[in-house]
Simulated scan of single mutants.
Amino acid sequence: MSTPRTPRTPRPPRPPRTQHTAPPLAIAYSPCPNDTFVFHAWAHGLVPGAPPLDVTFADIDVTNGLAERGADCPYDVLKVSYAQLPYVLDEFALLPCGGALGRGCGPLVLTREPGQAASLSGRTVAVPSERSTAYLLFRLWAAEAVPGGVGEIVVLPFHAIMPAVRDGTVDAGLVIHEARFTYPAYGLHQLADLGEHWERTTGLPIPLGAIIARRSLGAARLAELADAARASVRMAWDDPAASRAYVLEHAQEMDPAVADQHIGLYVNEFTADLGDAGYAAVRGLLTRAAAEGLVPALPPGALRLPE
């Protein structure tokens, strides 16, 4: 005779996973390898607990202009130039991670022929944005190095600047990003390294691109976004191959080796967290620029996230 089995106690149902039910956050950043590398994990829903993103790719001159629209800006989070911060911090807060700041990564001034800084006097110079950090560094440098000042400033998308210099459309070009590695292929010459000039004269790292988020999201939400950006950076470092296809898909036919150099230069410890040195660099740049009348002065404490 068989022994009756003891009935099993039913298992309690598993609690549902915590999910964000709010609409995705609208974010705009560039298709450059450093941005796609940094945001790959977050944009693809791989960061646990992070709010979903609705991603738009846009050149830095476009995102700078969008941020300046303030409450009318259609995005919650944007990548902008650090030079743009004094114009937008009423509406947007600086996130302490996800951006580009470092050493040996500053913009270059390029010409068709070797020359001296004085040769730019009265000349036409192409720049990626009049509100870019690159242009702010250029203005601070030119005030010392170019007697009488440069001539006309022409704004071009950064990928169009080197061809314009090569073809003689402009006399010089201010370039950023992977142009540091590729300008010799255009037969161009480096007239000045503005990052080297900044580091030598200040001892500070170079602030380039910032991640900002709408203040109306609230302090808790802003802290959550900072955590998500930081986690996305660390996940990219832990598994670089995971973002490879995404990076190259948006890298505008960039050589994969150049994309790797780009990421290695612009994604560093300051991308994970600005820290004291990073904040000092941003304050140093914007305070000096304000003293020269180039940007509005920053209110005290404006760079830190609200508590």
Rank of each mutant, 00 (worst) to 15 (best):
V175W: 04
G218Y: 05
L274H: 13
L140I: 09
Q19G: 01
D72N: 11
P306N: 06
T133I: 01
D76V: 08
T133E: 01
D239I: 00
Q261C: 13
Y87T: 05
R112F: 03
A302I: 09
A164W: 11
R234D: 13
G104I: 09
E196R: 14
T21H: 14
A118E: 15
A210G: 08
E224N: 01
P4D: 08
P163H: 10
T124D: 07
T111A: 12
D276G: 06
G168L: 09
A277K: 11
Y135I: 00
M1C: 05
G106W: 05
V295F: 08
L248A: 06
E292P: 00
E196Q: 15
L136N: 05
A26Q: 14
R221H: 14
L174S: 09
F57A: 03
P12Q: 05
G187V: 10
Y183I: 02
L156C: 06
T169V: 15
M162H: 01
A126C: 11
I212K: 06
D171E: 15
R69N: 05
G209H: 15
A236E: 00
L95V: 10
N34H: 13
L225K: 06
V155W: 00
L101Q: 12
N34V: 04
A93H: 09
R200P: 00
K79S: 15
V155P: 07
E196G: 11
S129M: 02
A245V: 03
R8E: 13
A297S: 14
M235T: 05
A28H: 07
V88Q: 04
A71S: 15
R215F: 11
L94N: 10
I60M: 13
A93I: 06
L95K: 10
T3R: 12
V150A: 12
H250G: 03
V109N: 05
E253S: 14
E113M: 06
D273L: 05
Q252F: 11
A100H: 02
V146T: 08
A257N: 02
I211T: 12
A28C: 04
A257V: 11
Y29I: 02
E68P: 00
T202D: 06
D276R: 14
P205Y: 10
E68C: 12
T133A: 15
G122W: 01
P10S: 12
P10N: 00
R5G: 05
S243I: 04
Y82F: 15
E269Y: 03
R221T: 14
A302W: 07
E253N: 14
A126L: 08
L294W: 08
Y75A: 02
A67N: 08
T56Y: 02
L294A: 07
Q19Y: 00
Q19H: 08
G168W: 09
A291K: 11
P51R: 07
R131W: 00
E199C: 09
H197L: 07
H189L: 01
E253T: 12
A118T: 13
P16A: 15
Q19D: 06
E249Q: 15
E196W: 01
S119K: 00
M1N: 04
Y266Q: 01
L101F: 09
Y183N: 02
A93G: 07
T6H: 08
R200N: 10
G98N: 03
Y75T: 06
G148E: 04
A179S: 15
G49S: 07
R131S: 13
E91W: 04
T271C: 07
P33K: 02
L208Y: 11
T111L: 02
E292L: 12
C32F: 12
E199A: 08
R14Q: 11
A231G: 00
A257G: 07
H44C: 09
T111F: 03
A160K: 14
H250I: 03
H44Y: 02
